Simulated scan of single mutants.
Amino acid sequence: MLTRDDVACWVLKSAVLPGEVDPDWQPRTEVETTRCVRRTYRVDLVTPGDPVLLWCSGRVAPGVHAVGTVVDTDPGGADVVVRWTRLADPVPRGALLSDPVARDAEVLRMPAGSNPSWLSPAQWAAVQALIPSAGRT
């Protein structure tokens, strides 16, 4: 079972690309969304201020498409409010699979797993190194 010390960053998965979530959401801009998560003990570990990644799955451009911060959680429910910044250049799944640390991330090992997934401190550092600084605000 995970603890807060295990998790450096949460990962929320979506089959929908950012431009389909909100057609006005341009790279390097922010949006705030409410995401549904599976009600498990993990939701109790999520707190405002935690970093989070938007992982888009599927055949078209799978990978990390946005970085964000947890704004709020539903104490008894299954919703997480996140403020996202869309990356100018998403980090492709292949780049993560090529990284010796990131490739062991749960989202890559168990892509059909439920939300939220997570990254360890070492995995989060590896993913941050792959995010072009021009893609962040």
Results as ranks from 00 to 15, higher is better:
T29Y: 07
A66E: 00
M110Q: 13
L96V: 09
V71C: 04
L119A: 12
P48W: 05
R42M: 10
T73S: 02
V21I: 15
V82P: 04
V101C: 06
W84T: 00
T85I: 02
P75C: 05
W10L: 05
P62M: 09
G76M: 08
V64A: 04
P48T: 02
L12S: 03
R35G: 01
L54F: 10
L45Q: 03
V21F: 10
T73R: 05
P48D: 02
E32I: 08
P18S: 11
D24L: 11
R59S: 14
D104S: 15
D44L: 10
V21Q: 12
L54E: 03
V82Y: 02
W118S: 12
V31H: 11
P48N: 00
W10V: 05
R38F: 11
T69E: 14
D79H: 15
T29S: 14
V31P: 01
T47E: 15
P121H: 13
V52I: 13
T33I: 04
D74H: 10
N115M: 07
A88S: 09
H65Y: 06
E106I: 11
P23Q: 12
L87H: 03
V37A: 05
T29P: 05
P111R: 09
P27T: 03
V91N: 03
R109M: 10
L97C: 13
S117G: 15
G94E: 15
S57C: 09
R59D: 15
W25S: 05
A78P: 00
R35T: 07
D79C: 06
G76Y: 11
D74C: 07
G76S: 12
L96Q: 09
A66W: 02
T73M: 01
R28V: 04
W55A: 11
S98L: 10
W10H: 06
W84G: 00
T40G: 00
T47P: 00
D104I: 00
P116S: 09
E20I: 08
L53Q: 04
E20H: 15
G68R: 00
S117A: 14
P62I: 06
S117K: 04
